[in-house]
Amino acid sequence: MLAVTAADHAAPGPRPEGPVAVLANPSAGRGRHRGLLPGVLERLTRVDRPVRLLAAETADRAEQVCRAAVADGIAALVTVGGDGTVHRGLQAVAGTTVPFGVVSTGTGNDFALDTGLPADPLVAAEAVAGALRAGRTHPVDLARMTGPAGATRWYATVLAAGFDAIVNERANRMRYPRGPRRYDLAILVELARLRPRRYTLRLDGEPLELDAVLVAVGNCASYGGGMRICPDADQTDGLLDVVVGGRFDRRTLVRVKPSIYRGTHVRHPLVSSHRARTVELAAEGITTYADGERALDLPLTVTAVPGALRLLR
């Protein structure tokens, strides 16, 4: 895990004549859009600027090359991949004036879904190119999380800090089976171990202690490929939506889970919703996941940062 500090964002502004940097993940979406990258790059070249494809063998390296590109004075950063690729690019452009474009080729693409970006990769590339030509960006909020030692990460969609994060952590430790079945097996294992945990929250300074199996802090509404866990979240309102699933037992949690795709789970009596600019969150033994990527251990603080991203659309 690579920590980012405020100093990393003391970068120069974009150079309009500079290159368009592209961070591409060919394995996103299980590689089903791998062959579209040349077409995406061709559409981006229509803005009459050089296009620079960034080389990165690992996720940490992806963040490093993105930050280096921003420091070099690029005209924009474009990610081609899923929410994980977006997450890596955000660490370089969050809090700067460098425009950010998204071409979604992942499995879930929740950021694109919630911000109204085109689902088709080639259409999305044309939209990014058009926005660049017109000099058009839209301000979008981001969430900034900070750990007790000062480590900082940014995210765009949802921070998972409960059962969903625990499942991800187990799935990532498993060597077998591969593919989606590993995640399914991790769910079964963690359902058998399900127990409420004691959480301590402070919402804009107001303390709240409760037992829960799920806590999500949303800048956007969706995670996990269209699960509307924070259905009322708005990435332009300067606020975070906090959804808490209380003392669920296994049977009730399984029964409620399908309603998350519709966002109607918030009507369940064991679910509570809150809204705040700053969320302090603590619990024992939880490693959080943000934009589907492994993030910081609890405790941490999440802050809504209005207009922290200049989105090309």
Rank of each mutant, 00 (worst) to 15 (best):
T105Y: 11
G162V: 06
R88Y: 10
V98T: 09
F111Q: 11
T146E: 15
A112W: 00
D120L: 11
V102M: 13
R170T: 09
I166S: 03
A171Y: 01
D114T: 07
A131I: 13
R136E: 14
Y155C: 07
A165L: 00
T105E: 15
T157C: 10
V86R: 06
A94Y: 06
G162C: 05
Y155L: 09
A94M: 12
A171N: 07
V103L: 12
T85A: 10
P121L: 12
P121N: 10
A131V: 12
G95E: 11
G147N: 07
G130T: 13
G95Y: 00
E126T: 04
T115Y: 06
P177M: 15
V128E: 03
A151T: 14
A134I: 12
R88F: 10
V167F: 04
T97N: 12
T137H: 01
T97Y: 10
L132F: 00
G89L: 02
D120S: 10
A129M: 04
P139A: 10
G147R: 08
G84Y: 00
N172S: 01
A161W: 02
A151M: 09
T85H: 04
Y176N: 09
A161T: 02
R170E: 08
A125I: 08
V140E: 07
F100D: 13
V103Y: 03
R173Q: 12
G179Q: 14
A134Q: 12
F111R: 07
G147D: 09
G150M: 14
H87F: 01
A156H: 03
A119W: 01
T157E: 08
G179S: 13
D110L: 03
T85M: 09
R170I: 08
R175A: 12
V93W: 01
A127C: 12
V86S: 07
N109W: 05
A131C: 10
M145C: 15
A94I: 12
T107N: 13
